[in-house]
Design a protein around this nucleic acid. Structure first.
Length: 567
RNA sequence: CGGGGCGUAGCGCAGCCUGGUAGCGCGUUCGGUUCGGGACCGAAAAGUCGGAGGUUCAAAUCCUCUCGCCCCGACCA
């Protein structure tokens, strides 16, 4: 393929709106262009990368026995009303009316649609199990799309759904998909971890996320350095034992007020008072089913909202608004304390272990020193509330401890049970002639997000360093000079490699060599062939590996063999 | 949705405070020179200054409203 025939609008400067590496490089390299917030067009190079990912998905899923279908993107409201999600899903579900005024939604996920498909035609356990997947544009009206393809509103997703006669069989398939996902992400050249995860709004009881390790990731995960336990921090367990029965301190001093004008927030106050944040008690106010609740964690810790939510058994659960906080504490935000508020108080185990803590005074511009949980809030419920962090002992083994990572979620597998099949009446007759709801699993992969994640892991100052399997072309050819022999050699190489099934991009632009080198490094093709007059005089061309930077001089025929052999 | 920031040529930005001829770099077009790591010289095309309203003799600039975009948080998965 000739460079001059493709639309590859590269940019020297990064667009102002892009902050994240993958976003900048995708735009600069001419892979994508923005159309609206979180909505992008894929240009030829971007489309090629996506096609590579899709091919890997199709091959591996096919190998695992899943069948490809294509469900509609536009779903009638009735389907979502049937599952109850028309009410539950919230504004992230883009809704609209057709000309007759009937309600529809753009599909953010397709449990309803696939259930509707399967229930019509699957009647017997003899037709099960069945595993259907599709690769399709999805739309989620995110409050805050960001970082290009990492978190768009419209994005390409592979979503799969399996139906089973028994729970055992669904779990068998879960494992089957899990294994397929491992193969897929390996083939994509990604450094990833499968982690235990919360099941969130989709529901169900068993779930793993596939997280690509990258600093720019939105998720926090912990992984044991000794055993293979790894989990999203939302889900990560803390080791039972030490803290549960741990030290409950007795008070060592009286409460005394501290004047901390304009110093809201733990870090600011800690700095102001020159005290360790570990001696602080963080007071968080939540609203659970309409009633305020106070949650306490140590100053340096995060609250695991899922733990508290589960503990309360609350339907709705959210961080209180500033107005509610002010109401509850009688002070400005930043000065909340747990004392004497007549509100249910849940304290983390670690909070009970601090003999003399610093916390908010429930009085604007004041904190208190000498706070002791057991003395000062005797009816507080002391429980495990905090988020796991790096350095914590592993909950699943002896002697291991957690290491913390940032991750980009590129895949997610769920065991769903009958959460959707029951309300959607996906029923079948079993061997005894009894009607049962099918047991389901669902499996997602963010196709466009994989492209972004791959760049986050593989780039340098000059641009992208695509893993061969995802690269839009495997080989690029550049000539340095105007001599006709150079172009002849380049064309021969192009012809020979393409005949061997290698995807080649021959940069035939009338540009200076430096400009061509720079763009090819930017778009990140893994192998470059540089044909220059000096080398060619001796019948040699230069091979450059984009990822390692290694170069070698070989004959034209050797180049053909070398690059053509591993297509 | 809360907080912060930005909308001026395809892209990156200056001009706005202190109202008066719309400017720079990159890119693009034409001509010439150059040719192994984003060349140089010369000429040129290209902008409803996000939109609406207001103040004013006069608005990119001041005021009001509005739309869009980015970042942090919350939300979501």
């Amino acid at each position: 393929m000739r460079y001059s025939k493709l639309l590859i609008p590269t940019l020297k400067e990064a667009p102002a709106e892009a902050q994240v590496t993958s976003h900048i490089l995708l735009v600069r390299g001419g892979f994508i262009r923005k159309v609206a917030a979180g909505v992008y067009s894929l240009l030829p190079l971007g489309m090629r990368v996506v096609a590579k990912i899709q091919n890997i998905l199709r091959e591996e899923l096919g190998r695992s026995g899943a069948q490809e279908v294509l469900l509609p993107m536009v779903h009638p409201a009735e389907l979502w009303q049937e599952s109850g999600r028309w009410q539950k899903y919230g504004p992230e579900l883009l809704r609209f009316k057709d000309r007759k005024g009937a309600d529809f939604a753009m599909s953010p996920t397709a449990e309803e649609a696939v259930c509707d498909l399967v229930r019509r035609d699957v009647r017997s356990y003899r037709q099960l199990p069945i595993n259907l997947f599709q690769i399709q544009d999805k739309f989620r009206d995110e409050m805050r799309p960001r970082a290009g393809l990492m978190r768009g509103r419209e994005f390409i997703m592979k979503d799969g759904y399996s139906f089973h006669a028994t729970e055992e069989d669904a779990k068998r398939e879960y494992k089957n998909m899990y294994d397929a996902y491992v193969r897929i992400f390996k083939r994509c050249g990604l450094d990833f971890r499968a982690v235990e995860a919360d099941t969130g709004a989709i529901g169900g009881s068993l779930s793993h996320e596939f997280q690509v390790l990258a600093e720019s990731g939105e998720d926090s995960i912990v992984a044991c350095d000794k055993c293979d336990y790894a989990a999203n921090v939302e889900k990560a367990e803390l080791k039972r034992g030490s803290m549960v029965d741990g030290p409950q301190s007795t008070a060592t001093g009286q409460i005394q007020e501290l004047h901390t004008p304009g110093k809201g927030g733990i870090d600011v106050v800690a700095k102001f008072l020159r005290e360790d944040v570990k001696r602080f008690v963080k007071t968080l106010i939540y609203v659970a089913d309409g009633k305020p609740v106070i949650a306490l964690v140590r100053g340096d810790r995060g609250l695991n909202e899922l733990k508290l939510k589960a503990l309360l058994g609350a339907e709705t659960f959210e961080l209180a608004s500033d107005t509610v906080v002010t109401q509850v504490t009688g002070a400005a935000v930043g000065y909340a304390g747990p004392q004497g508020r007549g509100v249910l108080v849940y304290a983390d185990l670690e909070v009970a272990a601090i003999p003399s803590a610093i916390t908010g005074a429930n009085k604007t511009d004041y904190h208190v020193r000498g706070f002791n949980l057991l003395r000062d809030v005797p009816d507080a419920k002391v429980v495990d509330l905090r988020t796991a962090a790096g350095g914590d002992p592993c909950a699943r083994c002896d002697g291991g401890s957690y290491r913390a990572f940032r991750g980009i979620e590129v895949g997610h597998v769920f065991f769903l049970g009958t959460k959707y099949s029951e309300p959607m009446k996906v029923n079948f007759l079993d061997a005894e002639g009894k009607e049962n709801a099918a047991v389901m699993g669902c499996y997602g992969i963010g196709v466009t997000r994989i492209a972004a994640a791959a760049i986050e892991q593989h780039h340098d100052q000059d641009g992208i360093k695509w893993p061969v399997q995802l690269a839009p072309f495997q080989v690029s050819i550049v000539t340095a000079g105007k001599e006709p022999e150079l172009a002849e050699a380049a064309e021969k190489l192009e012809r020979e490699l393409e005949a061997r099934g290698v995807e080649v991009l021959y940069d035939d632009r009338d540009e200076r060599p430096g400009a061509k080198f720079a763009t090819l490094d930017l778009i990140g093709l893994p192998r470059q062939v540089l044909i220059g007059p000096k080398g060619l005089a001796e019948g040699k061309v230069e091979l450059k590996d984009r990822r390692s930077g290694e170069r070698e001089l070989v004959s034209l025929d050797a180049a053909i063999d070398k690059l053509g052999g591993k297509a």
